[in-house]
Amino acid sequence: MPARALKELEISDVEDILNKEEWSLPFFSCRVESDIDSLGDPALWVWVVYDVKEVDLDAAHQAERKIQSLISEAGDERWVYVRFRTREEDADTDEDNDEDSSWSDDSARSDTGSVNL
């Protein structure tokens, strides 16, 4: 029997959910991407960028669980991976991606959006 398809929101809807929430942490921005994870399941990656020099990982852990809950409660059944960056690291990532874009067209995730929190 084929596996039941997971309920999935549009990336823009996920962004809206995250935008509507009031965040007390020093978030700068948040990117949402969808792809298949290492288990072969559809999943979301939420890249949270902090406006700090060093990420407070205790606070980040709380944010991770809250983001997962918000998306789950909205009805999206995909697994949510939450990853953190400082602004400096995020800028560095963009630069690296530009440098490596000739390696493979598969490097980009299939569906990408961004939100400002």
């Binding site: 290492s38 990420v55 990982l57 980040a60 990853r83 953190f84 960056r85 400082t86 690291e89 560095d92 990532t93 690296d96 490596d100 390696w103 493979s104 490097s107």
Partner: peptide, 19 residues
């Protein structure tokens, strides 16, 4: 770990390792 070991395009940052 899967990204770190098998995704040659991934460039982790210090925050990833600390996390």
């Amino acid at each position: 770990r899967h990204d770190a070991d098998y995704n040659i395009l991934q460039k982790p940052k210090k925050t990833d390792a600390r996390q």
